[in-house]
Measured scan of single mutants.
Amino acid sequence: DEVTIHLGDKTIRVDGLDKELLEILKELARRGADEEELRKEIERWER
Rank of each mutant, 00 (worst) to 15 (best):
T11I: 14
W45C: 04
L22M: 11
E27L: 03
L21W: 02
L7S: 04
R30V: 07
R44S: 12
V14D: 03
K10A: 13
L25N: 00
I5H: 03
L22V: 15
D18A: 15
G8R: 04
A33E: 02
K26L: 15
G8W: 01
E46P: 15
R30H: 09
G16H: 15
W45H: 11
T11D: 12
R13N: 14
D15S: 15
E46W: 04
W45P: 02
E20R: 14
D34Y: 03
E20D: 12
R31C: 15
R30A: 15
D9S: 10
R31Y: 06
L17Y: 12
L38Q: 01
R39W: 10
G32W: 01
G8Y: 01
R44L: 06
R47D: 15
W45S: 03
K26T: 10
T11M: 04
D1N: 13
E37A: 14
V14M: 09
T4W: 02
L38D: 00
L21T: 01
D18N: 09
R31T: 12
T11Q: 10
E27D: 15
W45N: 04
R44N: 15
K19W: 12
E23H: 09
D15P: 14
L28A: 06
E36Q: 10
E36M: 12
G8L: 05
K19R: 09
G8F: 02
R13V: 13
L7R: 02
W45Y: 06
T4C: 13
K26Y: 08
D1A: 10
E20Y: 07
A29D: 04
K19C: 06
R13Q: 10
I24G: 01
R31N: 14
D1W: 05
L25Y: 01
L21F: 05
W45Q: 04
I12P: 02
D34N: 15
R39G: 02
I42D: 00
I24D: 01
E27S: 07
E37F: 06
R13G: 05
R39I: 08
T4S: 11
L25R: 00
W45I: 05
D15H: 03
T11V: 11
E36D: 14
D9F: 01
I5G: 04
I42V: 04
G8E: 10
E46V: 05
D34H: 07
L22H: 05
R39H: 04
E41Y: 06
E23M: 07
I12R: 01
R30N: 12
E23R: 11
V3W: 07
V3Q: 14
L21H: 02
E23I: 10
V3F: 13
A33V: 08
V3K: 12
A33M: 06
L22F: 08
L17A: 09
E35D: 07
H6V: 14
R44I: 08
E35T: 06
R44D: 13
E35S: 08
E23Y: 04
L17D: 02
